[in-house]
């Protein structure tokens, strides 16, 4: 580390560009959902601005880092920043896992007439539920929704066929876990300074991640074909939002791994100094663990 000073950057345009990009994306998205013609193109424009901002901003940071403008303390700020960003991600997923558990353990049984007062000692289904949705069976996965049409007029896609756990989900879990193993080998190679092995294992990790995404899309295709849709009531809602946001994070992870591979080729890292690699590696392990949680709680128990 070349200098002892804490680097305080001079003025920057990237944040305001980012704000314009994100706002454009959201305004476009909202209009798109309301059926406005220009919505989609404005969304695309916003996305392009965001990509431009990310390249510019992160490019500046990488340049500053390579030119030795950051000391150990700046490095530590990035480490703290990254770790608490990850914590916010954990809490975001926690909201959706919370919704899954709440529905499974509490609200679906209540819809089926279960008593919610443990002091009453009731064992039979409450009478009231029979009058509201006659014949509703509280099961998990909830394949038949209590009503056929939602409050806002959505026709629920009930009676769907569930995704076979032994098929794509198991394969995908295997792929993602293998990518975790290859990434660990890459990490090892980086720490030992074995460049060729590092590049090989990074390539393998990226390929496995991309394969996961491909199979995930295929799984969605099958599920939609079998009637499991976003409109399949609470099961479809939790299934798609959890796996969807996970897939979104895998996509980001694959992009970040690719950038790291590029930076490896450029010789930005050495065996002692590779925070960017560590950050992305941790992110990938985190995304991997989220999937494991999904696999266990959505597909198994």
């Amino acid at each position: 580390m070349s200098n002892q000073d804490y680097y305080v950057p001079h003025g920057t345009y990237w944040p305001i560009i980012g704000s314009i990009g994100v706002s454009t994306l959201f305004v476009g998205f909202a209009n798109q959902m309301h059926g406005v013609e220009w919505g989609g193109s404005v969304m695309g424009l916003g996305m392009a601005i965001i990509v431009f901002m990310l390249f510019g901003w992160l490019g500046t940071v990488v340049n500053e880092s390579v030119n030795g403008m950051y000391n150990k303390q700046v490095d530590k700020s990035f480490r703290w920043g990254m770790s608490w960003f990850i914590f916010s991600e954990v809490m975001f997923f926690a909201a959706f896992f919370g919704a899954l558990f709440y529905a499974r353990i509490l609200s679906v049984p209540w819809l089926g007439g279960a008593d919610n007062n443990m002091f009453s000692g009731a064992t039979e289904a409450l009478e009231t539920s029979k009058y509201i949705w006659e014949g509703f069976q509280a099961t998990w996965p909830l394949i038949n929704t209590p009503g056929a049409v939602g409050q806002s007029g959505v026709e629920f896609s009930s009676g769907f066929k569930l995704v076979d756990t032994w098929g794509l989900p198991a394969l995908n879990t295997g792929l993602l876990l293998t990518s975790g193993v290859t990434l660990t080998y890459a990490h090892h190679a980086l720490r030992k300074g074995h460049r060729n092995a590092l590049v090989f294992w990074m390539l393998a990790t990226i390929a496995l991640g991309a394969a996961f995404l491909g199979f995930q899309i295929a799984e969605y295709g099958h599920a939609y074909h079998d009637g499991l849709k976003l409109t399949s009531g609470i099961y479809g809602s939790t299934f798609y939002l959890l796996t969807g946001f996970h897939g979104f994070h895998v996509t980001i992870g694959v992009i970040m791994l690719t950038v790291i591979l590029y930076r490896i080729q450029k010789g930005h890292f050495d065996s002692d100094n590779h925070f960017a690699f560590e950050g992305v590696a941790w992110y990938w392990h985190f995304v991997d663990v989220v999937w494991l949680g999904l696999f266990v709680f959505v597909y198994w128990i």
Binding site: R104, I105, V108, P109, G112, A114, A125, Q137, A138, T139, W140, P141, I143, L162, V163, D164, T165, W166, A170, T173, G174, L177, L292, F295, V296, V298, Y299, W300, I301
Partner: peptide, 23 residues
Amino acid sequence: FALLMFSGFMGWIEPNTTMLPTQ
């Protein structure tokens, strides 16, 4: 993962593809 696959294979646990009553 191996444990899940194996115990599923041995039938010790059932995947979530069978509808189970929640009560």
